[in-house]
């Protein structure tokens, strides 16, 4: 991978943690909008094949929240209309809309996260906390396709023997469970063989050596430092209340001068970081090509 994908996974993890946590757990609509814009930009810039259907869910989610919230919450002073003696208020609708925007931003951030952080990177990051857990994850990830293939073979055998019926959903379910049970017998035996051969090759006996898949370079350290700095730039004023926002009874936003400006710019820059990284890499590539 190039661009943002080439940064050390631990730094990428830290980045996604910072950007989503500060975006999700604030009720400030400006932060939500910045977060959504940043997430969409990154999603658009990433040079990976993307599924167009990703857009359906966030749009539906935003609509659902904007329409649904006023039905459950009747706070707010500007009444738009009254249904069954329950007032539908402007504030409540806007609250729903911004909750929807916040959730959509989270959807896009996680969508980009899935595109960038592949399973080997998850394993690498987990290795910081626990080698054993990383080993369990590695093995499980290798077993999943193996078991799916094996299950297909067992299914075929059961069909050929005339044991498997797929007439109703109940018989399909029972057939599925039988395949599952056969698969388990097979798997447990192989598990014992695997673990014995691991022990025979010296696993868990004595000191272990290791080989990290990704190197932590100066470039990664800079990226991590920038992420931490920008997060603190947002979080410190936020802890002092510089991002406080009230929807009820009427929409009320207060600016606290420098600290608010610092928080908003900090968060906006944080959201832009990966897109800038990706974009600058793309530009460099473009100019190198034209020169040759």
């Amino acid at each position: 991978m190039t661009g943002f994908g080439s940064i050390n996974p631990a730094a990428v993890f830290a980045y996604f943690l910072c950007v989503t946590v500060s975006g999700i757990f604030t009720l400030n609509p400006i932060i939500s909008v910045i977060s959504l814009a940043g997430a969409l930009l990154l999603w658009a810039v990433l040079p990976v094949a993307k599924n167009k259907r990703t857009h359906i869910y966030p749009v539906l989610l935003t609509l659902f929240c904007a329409v649904g919230n006023p039905l459950f919450s009747h706070n707010g002073e500007t009444v738009l209309l009254v249904i069954n003696n329950n007032p539908i208020t402007l504030q409540s609708t806007l609250y729903g809309l911004f909750i929807g925007i916040m959730l959509s931003a989270a959807v896009y951030w996680f969508s980009s996260f899935s595109l960038i952080v592949s399973s080997d990177k998850i394993i690498y990051t987990l290795g910081f906390i626990s080698q054993k857990a990383a080993l369990v994850l590695t093995m499980a990830l290798r077993f999943v396709p193996l078991y799916i293939r094996k299950a297909r073979q067992i299914n075929g055998t059961q069909k050929a023997l005339g044991l498997y019926k797929d007439e109703t959903i109940i018989t399909r379910f029972r057939g599925g469970v039988r395949v599952f049970s056969v698969l388990m017998t097979n798997m447990i035996e192989k598990t014992i063989i695997t673990s014995d051969s691991m022990a025979a090759r010296g696993y868990s006996g004595g000191k272990r050596s290791g080989y990290p898949l990704f190197k932590f370079t100066f470039k990664d350290a800079v990226f991590l430092a920038v992420t931490v700095f920008l997060t603190l730039l947002t979080a410190v004023p936020q802890a002092k209340g510089a991002l406080d926002f009230n929807f009820y009874p009427h929409i009320d936003i207060t600016f606290y001068g420098v600290s608010s400006v610092a928080a908003y710019t900090g968060y906006a820059l944080l959201c832009l970081c990966p897109s800038v990284y990706e974009g600058s890499d793309r530009l460099k590539w473009h100019y190198l090509i034209s020169r040759i």
């Binding site: 054993k132 369990v136 499980a140 077993f143 193996l146 078991y147 599952f180 798997m187 447990i188």
Partner: peptide, 10 residues
């Protein structure tokens, strides 16, 4: 350890 991994995969 391997059994845990196998059940996760299962």
């Amino acid at each position: 350890l391997v059994l845990v991994a196998a059940f996760v995969a299962l």
